[in-house]
Design a protein around this nucleic acid. Structure first.
Length: 826
RNA sequence: GCCGAAGUGGCGGAAUUGGCAGACGCACCGGACUCAAAAUCCGGCGGGCUAAACACCCGUGUGGGUUCGACUCCCACCUUCGGCACCA
């Protein structure tokens, strides 16, 4: 009776053995080359979902492959453990966030271990542990001392449902990224990181990341939003003050017929003339109201109101009216915009609505533009008109020319603007790392000294659904003494954005228990940068931009030697069911636990790797899983059925084989080549698995169709062992089990990756295609070493080809070595 | 609106440098084994035409183009998905 593939026992057995033998422990230092393979660590929601399974299956193949290739592979796992869901659970179920999080981690760790990942679990940590967040706080202080963390009042995004502010990056089409509630604008005192100081480097260094998907780089580029132009000052009539604007089109300065200010701008109050005061106030109130209510609706009607004030165009001395307009953003540029209706569509619409003049200053070749009758703004190239000394100049030259002219008169300068804003990191929440700041009446804002870190988050707290952080209501937390003067002081009760915790965790994995600093310099130097980073594309901006910012800051501070944290980035696609993302509300969730229980980890891993290339979305298919299960059973039966035959065989087949033995060896070595290339160069695991399947089909053929006397057992032995080595990264349990049954005393996961012999790939005879006028007309078998001239000769000698070309003129014959011959006839 | 990606059998996908379209898997059909079924093994499987095989024709979102030869390169368009969205 043949033994069945008992995945459940096999997997349990090897899981225990690997752990006992420390198979996946990686040394901090050694002579081997290093490779850092990292998957985005999970938020401990309480259960693994298929996205995790896919992410971690991909990462594990890379890690195992590189290990077999001779690298010391750092492959750690941890928990992004602070965050709002823990607080919601506390409110709903009365469980303290710390306990809820700890329980979830325990559950998820068990699930993750079932998957058979090659993690060095000794390095595990959770960001909510004081041993970790102590250094999160320390890093905050480093930023603070460098002037890169500051408290400022600014209009911020407030999510009424989460009862906290959000970073700009966490607002998706004017709604909270987490809960989709429409955000409100509030003026609040908050902590910011000056990421804008790094805007240019964050942009420029994208060029140093050839291993990142173009898509992600473009998204970051757009997010940073660099634009070149000029800042221009317009003196305000009757006030000793100037109105500054940023423009990318200083060449159109002569066409300015009005000016605008954002409704939130303090200048509004100063310029408005008394007789227009009440009307303007009403407009401002309305505009602000609208911007809160109507923000999700996208673009709305452009409206403005005249302030009664005028300012002076520094180029031509003209006075132009100042408006307040609802389309002007306080947060971008200077909060003021010059209006050039003839050459900007938005200004054009505004001018037509309010009867403002449209003056053409850029004239294209051909039909002259007329400001009074033109149907839309002209934004293309041309020569300047109505601009005094600059008339006749091509507008592209005038951009620099006019800016220089203004600069000489102190009325303007070249300026680069970014769309990127500073990173707001304060959260009015409890379950996060406390911001290590104390407010003292005498000394003001005082950083908590290093020796007093961590500022511990009290874990014993009561939760009321008030929307207020419990920290604000804990006197023993709030009341403290000033580190400077020893007097009475009050602690900051806001906590840090959890993206702060995940901006440096990849450094910590190198020295997870270090307590003299956030990491050991020598260890970070050995392991960083991360060679391969793998995770969802939803972090294209948030996490990946913040991490790059942190790395650059740490580089400047001399704390790390890398300027970019992640050399290669793989953004995996989503796991879909019935064409839609799996979600509870749609009821199309497939539970990893269930699949792992029913088919085992090897099958589950194999399926998510086989069903699609990693960067594409993956459609879940129960039948597809079934197919992978069948494949592994097939491997099991094949290998166990030949064990006896190959036991006595030499480990290496003889050199000069012929016929079926030679073909079998060729297939083995072709497969090694194919699988190696697919993993290493392309990360295309689906085609690697296909190749292994083809090899298994070939091995079946070899076993069943070739008489035993003609088969060299050494050839089968080689095929079996190479196959298991090739499958080891994909199906680690099954391959280790069968490896042991082949008579090996040590784990397959300590074996080197197989090499192929190029000589064995060579075929004696190959089939080539014969085309006539590009259409396949015949196939012939020729010796593989044939020259192009011989190919041509052989093909033209074929009777079938002679018939087909009879009576036609042969214009040209194109032989493609090893592939085909194309005969062009007329 | 702007930016980006993708469109290939009944389905997931393959074709890596412009050279045999549909590898591999799923589904389906036929056969072997079986009292029977399941499992397993073997074979078939883009469409048209044909009694059938051969041959031939069509076929990679649509329409053009380049080329001896195009899923692959160029131009225009359509659809789907993702990102940004009053950014001066």
């Amino acid at each position: 009776m043949e033994e069945k593939y008992a995945f459940s026992e096999i997997e349990e057995k090897w899981r225990g053995r690997w752990e006992r033998d420390g198979v996946y422990h990686v040394p901090d230092f050694s002579d081997r080359p290093k490779y850092y393979c990292l998957e985005m660590f999970p938020y401990p929601s309480g259960h693994l979902h298929m996205g995790h399974v896919r992410n971690y299956a991909i990462g594990d193949v890379v890690a195992r492959f590189k290990t077999m290739r001779g690298y010391d592979v750092l492959h750690p796992m941890g928990w992004d453990a602070f965050g709002l869901p823990a607080e919601n659970a506390a409110i709903q179920h009365g469980v303290p966030p710390a306990r809820w999080t700890r329980d979830n981690i325990n559950t998820m760790r068990d699930q993750l271990k079932l998957m058979g990942g090659s993690y060095d679990w000794r390095r595990e940590f959770a960001t909510c542990h004081p041993g970790y967040y102590r250094w999160t706080q320390w890093l905050f202080l480093q930023l603070y001392y460098q002037g890169l963390a500051y408290k400022g009042k600014a209009p911020v995004n407030w999510c009424p449902s989460c009862a906290t502010v959000l970073a700009n990056e966490q607002v998706v089409t004017e709604a909270c990224e987490r809960c989709k509630t429409a955000v409100e604008r509030r003026e609040l005192e908050q902590w910011f990181f000056r990421i804008t100081a790094y805007a240019e480097r964050l942009l420029q260094d994208l060029k140093k990341l050839p291993g990142w998907p173009e898509k992600v780089k473009v998204m970051q580029e757009n997010w940073i939003g660099r634009s070149e132009g000029a800042e221009i000052s317009f003196p305000i009539r009757g006030l000793d003050e100037e109105m500054r604007v940023f423009t990318t089109r200083p060449d159109t300065l002569g066409g300015v017929t009005y000016m605008t200010i954002a409704p939130e701008h303090p200048l509004c109050l100063r310029v408005t003339v008394p007789e227009r005061r009440s009307e303007v106030d009403a407009f401002i109130a309305r505009a602000r109201n609208l911007s809160e209510l109507d923000r999700t609706a996208g673009e709305h009607e452009k409206e403005g109101i005249f302030t009664g004030a005028y300012c002076v165009n520094p180029l031509n001395g003209e006075e132009v009216p100042i408006f307040i307009a609802n389309y002007v953003l306080m947060e971008y540029g200077t909060g003021c915009v010059m209006g050039v209706p003839a050459h900007d569509q938005r200004d054009f619409e505004f001018a037509r609505k309010y009867g403002l003049p449209v003056r053409v200053v850029i004239q294209p070749d051909g039909e002259p533009l007329d400001g009074d009758t033109m149907p839309e703004a002209y934004t293309g190239p041309g020569r300047l008109v109505n601009t005094g000394d600059f008339n006749g100049l091509p507008n592209l030259e005038a951009i620099a020319g006019i800016t220089r002219h203004l600069e000489a008169r102190g009325a303007g300068r070249f300026q680069v603007q970014y769309r990127l804003r500073d990173w707001l990191i304060s959260r009015q929440r409890y379950w996060g790392a406390p911001i290590p700041i104390v407010y003292c009446d005498g000394c003001g804002t005082v950083p908590v000294p290093k020796a007093e870190l961590p500022v511990l988050l009290p874990e014993d707290v009561a939760f009321q659904p008030t929307g207020k952080s419990p920290l604000t209501e804990l006197p023993e937390f709030v009341h403290t003494t000033c580190p400077t003067c020893g007097g009475q002081a009050r602690r900051e009760t806001d906590t840090m954005d959890t993206f702060m915790c995940s901006s440096w965790y990849y450094f910590r994995f190198t020295s997870p228990r270090e307590d003299g600093g956030p990491w050991s310099l020598a260890r970070v130097d050995r392991w960083l940068p991360v060679d391969q980073y793998i995770g969802g594309v939803e972090h294209a901006i948030l996490h990946l931009l913040y991490s790059r910012f942190f790395t650059k800051f740490l580089y400047d501070a001399g704390l790390v030697k890398v300027q970019e944290p992640f050399t290669n980035l793989l953004t995996q696609g989503m796991v879909l069911k019935d064409g839609a993302k799996m979600s509870k509300s749609k009821g199309n969730v497939v539970s990893p636990e269930e699949i792992l229980g029913r088919y085992g980890a090897d099958t589950t891993r194999l399926f998510v790797l086989f069903a699609a290339p990693p960067e594409r979305d993956l459609e879940w298919s129960d039948q597809g899983v079934e197919g992978c299960y069948r494949f592994l059973q097939r491997v099991w039966r094949l290998v166990t059925s030949v064990l006896e035959d190959i036991q006595e065989a030499p480990p290496r087949p003889p050199d000069h084989l012929v016929g079926v033995n030679r073909s079998m060896r060729r297939l083995t070595h072709q497969t090694i080549k194919k699988v190696t290339g697919d993993i290493e160069a392309r990360l295309n695991f689906n085609t690697a698995i296909s190749a292994a399947m083809e090899m298994v089909n070939g091995m079946h053929h070899f076993r069943d169709r070739v008489p035993a006397v003609n088969r060299d057992p050494a050839v089968m032995r080689e095929a079996v062992e190479k196959l298991l080595l090739l499958l080891a990264p994909f199906a680690p349990y099954l391959s280790d089990e069968l490896w042991a049954r082949c008579g090996h005393a040590t784990s397959i996961h300590r074996e080197p990756w197989p090499e192929y012999d190029p000589e064995l790939l060579v075929e004696d005879r190959i089939e080539i295609v014969v085309q006539i006028n590009g259409r396949v007309r015949d196939r012939i078998t020729v010796p593989s070493g044939i020259t192009p001239a011989e190919m041509e000769e052989t093909v033209l000698a074929q009777s079938r080809i002679r018939e087909l070309v009879a009576g036609k003129e042969i214009k040209k014959v194109i032989p493609v070595p090893g592939k085909l011959v194309n005969i062009v006839v007329r």
